[in-house]
Amino acid sequence: MKKRLVVPLAAFAVLGSQIQAIAHGVKIEYQVQSAIEIQSAYDNGEPMQAAQVAVYSPDNPTEPWLTGQTDANGKFIFAPDPQIEGNWEVQVRQAGHGEIVAIPLSSDSESKLQASIVKGSTGYSAPQLILMGLMGIWGFVGTALFFAKGKS
């Protein structure tokens, strides 16, 4: 009795799933847009992995237009709505460390986009930073020597 039921049930199941698959046909459309890539790193050069990103559009600076996470290399890519011109603000944050960058977006200029993203770094090269550090240390040591001399 049971065996007799198995065959029609199996046939029904296969047919049924086929019908379902046809009903879930997929259509993918695409269009080429300009996107903004955010590269975030700590000041020691280590990428901010899985940091939270909130993108604010110029017309609503209080609620995020998009939220997401950076990837393992500290990168985050999003395509802003080209209709909304003005300063797009992107906040990257992890464990109390973070930065907000304002990215001016206007329909005519593509070059502007890339210029303003490099923020958060001091803009100095490693030798410059070392020199600045040494000068700072010398300032402190010099102060110490000055007062030590005055004492004797």
């Binding site: 550090g133 700072g136 240390i137 402190f140 040591v141 102060t143 110490a144 020597l145 007062f147 030590a148 005055g150 004492k151």
Partner: peptide, 16 residues
Amino acid sequence: QAGVPKASLLTAAFFV
């Protein structure tokens, strides 16, 4: 003033 040299040196240590 006697504490200034020591404080200044340790400020350098903190800075670094």
